[in-house]
């Protein structure tokens, strides 16, 4: 394994960087999109609730690989030329956002209803109440399951390997093919994934303790 690191580090490091980049972008956008659809799901307006539900049910129940392939194949055909990295990151964002929506929705619903009534009767609009009162309390509650989603997201970014996204998994495959040292290559790849996921995991735990 040391030998693989010593000789193949430029490829593996590049892959690690791409995986990290994809994860950060997907994490950021899936959190925003997921929270938005979580709010849609609990809005008084029925049409919005249906939109939220359909989005979540569709993207939660289709395999990540299928969603990613869809963006890789269909987007260039009809809309705009995209590379594997972009298609993969979009697919990962949308797939993860459906799970985050469900997590955040559970958090919103566990905040006492009186908080929303108090805020609205105080003159705040629905969205202002969400932003200042409900969401801060909801996120605090769902930090542990949200942490799970973030870690899943990093690991799921290996889907980029299927659409030539030049991520860690893709580079690992290449290195394994070149060197024929399959076992130690993937051992090295595993260690590199841990470098991203372990700190994330500890950070979420730290956040949970700090805010509790």
């Amino acid at each position: 394994m040391i030998h693989i690191f010593a000789t193949q580090w430029p490829s593996l490091l590049y892959g690690l960087g791409q995986t990290l980049l994809c994860s950060i972008i997907a994490l950021f956008f899936s959190l925003i999109i997921g929270s938005l659809f979580a709010i849609f799901e609990i809005m008084p307006n029925k049409a919005m609730r249906i939109i939220g539900n359909v989005y979540v049910e569709v993207f939660r129940n289709i395999p990540l690989l299928v969603i990613t392939m869809f963006f890789f194949v269909v987007l260039p055909l009809y809309v705009v030329k995209v590379n594997g990295f972009t298609a993969g990151t979009i697919g990962l964002t949308i797939y993860t956002s459906a799970f985050i929506a469900e997590t955040v929705r559970a958090g919103i619903q566990s905040v006492d209803e009186g908080q929303m009534e108090g805020a609205q009767s105080n003159g705040l609009s629905f969205w202002q109440s969400m932003r200042y009162i409900i969401l801060p309390q909801a996120f605090k509650i769902v930090i542990p399951p949200l942490g799970n989603q973030f870690i899943n997201l990093v690991k799921n970014s290996s889907v980029l390997a299927f659409v030539a996204g030049f991520d860690l998994m893709y580079e690992g495959n290449m290195v394994a093919n070149d060197t024929l040292q399959t076992m130690s290559t993937f051992f090295a790849v595993g260690v590199l994934y841990l470098i991203i996921t372990m700190p994330l995991s500890y950070y979420m735990r730290h956040l949970e303790k700090k805010l509790a």
Binding site: D112, G114, Q115, E117, G118, A119, S121, Y132, I133, P136, Q137, K140
Partner: peptide, 9 residues
């Protein structure tokens, strides 16, 4: 309100 509904955060 009966149960105050102050902002907990």
């Amino acid at each position: 309100f009966q149960h105050f509904n102050l902002y907990a955060n």
